[in-house]
Design a protein around this nucleic acid. Structure first.
Lengths: 202, 202
DNA sequence: CTCCTACCTATACATATGTTTACTTATGAA
DNA sequence: TTCATAAGTAAACATATGTATAGGTAGGAG
């Protein structure tokens, strides 16, 4: 990223703070007043340079149309919490959205991701506890041994997924539970997605 | 929340979408054009009513100063990741901020919260693994047995905190580690804050 | 029916805001 | 020195945008 002068940095910071506080960008004259300048031109120059150098974007001729371009913008994505696993939940039914949680776009890069609340202690050795939220990326496959959300009939569970010759095994991370074994061709079992993150509130 | 008409709902949705796309709010005339209206007055009326009914807030006389008031706004807070625990880290030093992660404002209600990356397996039985991020609320006390970030001299650790008569005990959640015992009055030990959430990316 | 509200047109008007031209001052590089 | 750039003053200018006044139509509540 190209260098900016100290003054330009001050202006950029003021714009950031202003947007943070008001939810809309400052006008050129707002900035002018803040810095005690006697002309709008100076401000305009600063903005033009910040745009040239890639720190700001704007729509010309439009009021308060400044946007700060953040370094690898930590955008947020609202991810729906759609239910609890290990209960007979109507997966992916929009009616069942309990809440939306904002998640770093880093974590939820794909469209269609969702949260499930985990019920029970079957994954306790994978450090997923009862009540934890898992972030799921929908996909029809996972790598050997990855933690997946699997639908068996009308129920869904979180398990480690293994595929061998002609069978599929779902392993709990708890010695009290024995692996669930299915035939390779059983239509009743389907991978819903891969667990990509775990969230817990204490 | 007071009811709004279908038309008002349409306008509100358009405003939401516009802000989503442009990062700045539409002008009255933007909205007018979108709905194919021939006067600005109608739009103004809608906005006034949406403000009255609590769905919008605005700064009068200011261009593009609309703000959508979201239902129990799932706002986001940028929480800094300031280092790794169990290393001799200069805690809370702003220079050490590695990154900012957006977190649901529900989780980070307090000012000054921060993330620490947990190093090691000393809390494995509390389902906090090596590499997990813990969200910390700075406070000088915790309840008996809660998980806290504690500073011992120049180092910090995550441990369950217990205070007995004249001593303080820090318990790991791993049988391989023995509790650390300190005198009640030892100046060298201090509670930094309470661990309020755990985040893990798989 | 009468009154009220939602919704809309038409037409101005006031001002908030972006844009531009012309100059000045200071600083550092060539 | 000479040139380029950063930063700023001054004074207009153009237009984007909010606001106001005066009506008009349709439907529901009383």
């Amino acid at each position: 990223m190209r260098k900016i002068t100290d003054r330009q940095k001050q202006v950029l910071e003021y714009i950031c703070d202003f947007i943070d506080e008001h939810s809309y960008a400052p006008s050129i004259r707002d900035i002018q007043k803040h810095f005690g300048l006697k002309s709008t031109k100076g401000v305009k120059d600063h903005i033009d340079r910040l745009v040239e150098k890639g720190y700001l974007s704007r729509t010309e001729g439009t009021a308060r149309a400044l946007k700060v371009i953040r370094d690898g913008d930590k955008a947020t994505r609202k991810v729906p919490l759609i239910g609890t696993v290990a209960a007979g939940l109507p997966l992916l039914a929009e009616e069942n959205i309990e809440d939306y949680l904002p998640v770093s776009a880093d974590m939820a890069r794909t469209e269609g991701m969702f949260f499930l609340r985990v019920n029970g202690d079957s994954m306790i050795n994978a450090a997923i506890l009862d009540g934890d939220l898992v972030l799921v990326r929908p996909q029809p496959f996972v790598e050997q041994g990855e933690i997946a959300v699997v639908r068996i009939g009308d129920e869904a569970t979180v398990k480690r997924f293994f595929r061998f010759n002609t069978r599929v095994e779902l392993h709990s991370e708890n010695p009290d539970y024995t692996p669930i074994v299915y035939s390779d061709e059983d239509e009743d079992i389907r991978i819903v997605g891969k667990v990509t993150a775990v969230f817990r509130t204490l």
